[in-house]
Simulated scan of single mutants.
Amino acid sequence: MAHNDTFARRVRLDRLYRNGTGGLLVVPLDHPISGAPVIHSGRTGSLDRLVGELAANGADAVVLHKGALRHVAARRFRDLSLIVHLSAGTGLSTDPDAKVLVCGVTEALRLGADAVSVHVNAGAASEDRQLADLGAVAGECERWGVPLVAMVYARGPGIADGRAPRLVAHAAAIAAELGADLVKTSMPRAVADLEVLTAGCPIPMLAAGGDAADGPAALAHLADAMRAGAGGIAAGRLVFNAADPGAMLRRLAALVHDRALTRPLKGISQ
């Protein structure tokens, strides 16, 4: 990742990898714009309390939109990194796979970001604009020394299975080729496919977490991804929709930071 290895970028990456284990546990909380509520989930009662619970139970970073930061106390980020999400799109649109930029890199820096993230749906009708946005943000990140997380998925009218290994590899390649430091994507189910993908990707791959409704199966899949060489986990709904977000996060932290991958995933319930 020497393409933009500035001092500022190294400092910010160190903040992301604050646990020193080489793995990254991110909790995306950017869902309200797309239509999935966050702040009333679990037992937290507010976004600020939820972020505090995440900080106390092993998260390395959270992903938030700029307006959400008004509702989170600054002290929450003493032991937690902030990734400001620059993309948005709603499920109400005639093109639910569309994403547009709603924040810029310099604005994110003014908000205190340690990194930024951009969402791209490869295969969407608006794929060309989304790719252009990712490339432009990568250039700004290069200029300011800001780590970039690309959330890239194979999604669109012609995509039958976004987890197909060929499509996931393509999504990861898009992120790497356009200058991202990390890529979050949905991973294939088969362990053999996971190993090939992580070995062939030049940047760390963060396995998307899925929903709490998937229960133990989601955790088993994430454990497989970590065994196969994933660089970490990015789980939002799996955490904030859980009956006990803190307990769920501790289980994920064991996979990412303790590398407790050979232990059976017993006693996991929602």
Rank of each mutant, 00 (worst) to 15 (best):
A2D: 05
A2T: 06
R9V: 04
R9E: 01
R15Q: 13
L16I: 05
N19T: 04
V27D: 00
I33W: 12
S34D: 07
P37W: 00
V38S: 08
G42W: 00
D48Q: 06
D48L: 06
E53I: 13
L54I: 00
A55I: 05
A55P: 04
N57A: 14
G58W: 11
A59I: 03
A61Y: 07
V62R: 01
V63R: 09
L64M: 03
H65A: 14
A68W: 03
A68Y: 05
L69P: 09
V72H: 03
R75T: 10
D79C: 10
D79A: 11
S81Q: 01
I83Q: 10
V84N: 06
S87M: 06
S87Y: 11
G91C: 14
L92Y: 15
S93G: 04
A98P: 00
A98S: 13
L101V: 06
V105T: 02
E107K: 08
A113Y: 00
A113P: 00
D114R: 05
H119G: 11
V120D: 00
V120Q: 04
A124D: 02
D128G: 07
A132M: 08
G135C: 12
E140L: 10
L148P: 00
L148D: 01
L148R: 09
V149E: 03
V152L: 10
R155D: 00
R155I: 01
A164N: 06
A164E: 03
R166A: 15
A172D: 01
E177H: 07
V191F: 11
A192G: 12
L194D: 00
A199Y: 11
I203W: 13
P204W: 09
P216W: 00
A218K: 04
A220L: 13
L222D: 05
A225Q: 09
G229Y: 01
G231F: 12
G232W: 06
R237N: 09
V239I: 02
G246T: 06
G246L: 15
G246D: 03
G246F: 14
A247T: 11
M248A: 09
M248Q: 06
L252R: 05
A254I: 06
A254P: 07
V256I: 07
D258G: 13
T262H: 15
T262K: 15
T262L: 15
G267N: 10
G267F: 02
I268Y: 04
Q270A: 13
Q270T: 06
